[in-house]
Structure formats: C-alpha cells, structure tokens
C-alpha cells in the first residue's frame, strides 16, 4: 500500500495535478480582481478559503488513497460505522428534536448496513474500498438527509394535527394507526425529490457520481449503470431510515398506554 502511495506521489499524475492547480490560480486572481473592483472586501476570505480548502482536500485525498486500497470487509465496515456515527452526531447541532442523535443513529445504521450488505453480498458492487466507501458515504449522507426531512415533517404535522391524532386515539386507534397519514406524507415528502431526480436522469441532469466517474476516465455506460444503482441505494436506504425514524418518534411522543404524552416538546 505504501509502495503504491510512493509510486503515486512520484507519478506524472501528481505533476500534472500540480500544473492544473497552478493554472487554476488564474481563476483565484480573477476573483480577487473582481472583489477589489466591486469593493466587496472578500480578498482575505478567498485566499484563506482556497489555502485551507486545498490543504484539507489534498489531505483527504491521501487518506482516501489508503482507504481505497483496503479490501478487508471488516475494515470497510468499521470505516462505514464511523461515518454513520459522525453523520448521526452532526444532526445534533442542526436539529433540536428530542433524542435526535439516537433516532438518526438507529435510522442511518439500519438503513445503511442493510443496503450496503445487500449490494455487497449480491456482488452489485465490488468489495473494494474505492467502491464501498464512496457509495457507502452517499448512502449514509442521503439516509441522514432524507430521514431528517421525514422527521421535520412528522413533528410539524403533529403540531398542526395534534387534535386529529388525539381524536383517533380516543376512538381506540393505536399510535401507529393514528399517525398513519402523517407518517405516509412525511415519507412521501422525503422520497419524492430523489425519485423525481431518478426519473429525469440523463434528460435534464447528469448527476455528480456519473460526472465524476466519466471525468475519472470510466466508460460512460458503466458510469450510467453505477448512477442508477446509487439512486436505488439512496432511495431504498432513505425509505428504511424514514420507517425506523417514524417508529422511534412514535415511541417518544406516545406513552406506553398509547396516548400522546402531554409534555413531549420540540425545543
């Protein structure tokens, strides 16, 4: 692996990449010129952002070189697990719902492990870091994003339709039954944008994964197939995460006797 890294550093590729970076500094110069001309006072931010971003992304590149060379399934799952924990933890900063970390961790973990295990076991993607990690990353980040949409929608609908939910409970409905329409609407709201994006694939958009693979030299047909696979992975994992999240929310807002807790709160 280290040999491979050394070869990579010595390779013509790196020299070529350096040349491109230096040439692209012209764009930075244009940005600085425009900022000075328009008195936006952004020159410092541009330079700081460029240098910091360059260092971070190059460091990430080196880490990815090591990760992509991994072929041990156990190690790959350990890395995926860390990504899942980081994704769930990041929701705590942006969303103040009760037990958001636990809910997201459960949703993302069940969804991602299930979908990644299916695609690996069935041989849909190779057991190689360069496939498992980036595709796993997409599955994890989308499971997080989609289930957060569902969570937001469930809580906001519950606020508006609390009276109706209580009416259903008073008639003898279980919490799941009383929340049926709210959960259905939330899952639809979270999945429909991705489903629509999948439906316009190739006509209106060439998404990031496919573009990246083509730029990286992959045959466009193969890249297209991976693109549709990733859409299926994203939507199916999002669906699973939505279901886990919605069940977990029911546990939080209803008491063990199936009545809405009077003191559940969204701060």
């Amino acid at each position: 692996m280290i040999d491979w890294l050394n070869n990579f550093i010595d390779s013509a590729l790196l020299i070529d990449a350096g040349r491109r970076i230096i040439l692209s500094l012209i764009l930075l110069a244009i940005m600085l010129g425009l900022s000075r001309w328009q008195h936006t006072d952004l020159e410092g931010s541009f330079i700081y952002g460029f240098i910091r971003g360059l260092v971070q992304i190059v460091l990430l590149g080196f880490i990815l070189v090591i990760i992509f060379s991994l072929q041990s399934l156990l190690l790959l799952y350990i890395i995926l697990s860390l990504m899942i924990v980081f994704a769930a933890a990041s929701t705590r900063r942006t969303h103040k719902y009760p037990k958001v970390f636990e809910i997201e961790l459960a949703g993302i973990a069940v969804a991602s492990y299930t979908i990644m295990t299916i695609v690996i076991v069935l041989g849909i993607i190779p057991v190689k870091g360069e496939y498992v990690i980036p595709l796993g990353g997409m599955v994890i980040s989308n499971s997080m994003a989609l289930s957060l949409i569902a969570m937001e929608r469930i809580y906001s609908d519950l606020e508006h339709k609390k009276g109706m939910v209580e009416a259903a409970i008073a008639l003898g409905a279980t919490p799941r039954k009383a929340m049926n329409s709210i959960i259905r609407d939330a899952i639809r709201a979270s999945l429909l944008p991705s489903t629509n994006r999948m439906a316009i694939l190739g006509i209106v958009s060439i998404p990031g994964l496919m573009s990246g693979m083509i730029i990286g030299g992959m045959n466009p047909i193969i890249a297209a197939i991976y693109q549709i696979i990733i859409f299926l992975m994203i939507i199916s994992s999002g669906f699973i995460a939505d279901i886990i999240v919605s069940y977990y929310i029911i546990k939080i807002v209803f008491d063990p006797n199936g009545a809405l807790k009077p003191d559940y709160s969204i701060e």
């Binding site: 209580e166 409970i169 008073a170």
Partner: peptide, 13 residues
C-alpha cells in the same frame, strides 16, 4: 387494553 378501553369509555374533544 388501552385501545379497547378507549372504545368503551369514549372521550369527545
């Protein structure tokens, strides 16, 4: 059973 009970003792909001 809470659900069966609520069917029998019916609360009208």
């Amino acid at each position: 059973n809470p659900q069966k009970y609520r069917k029998t003792v019916s609360y009208v909001q």
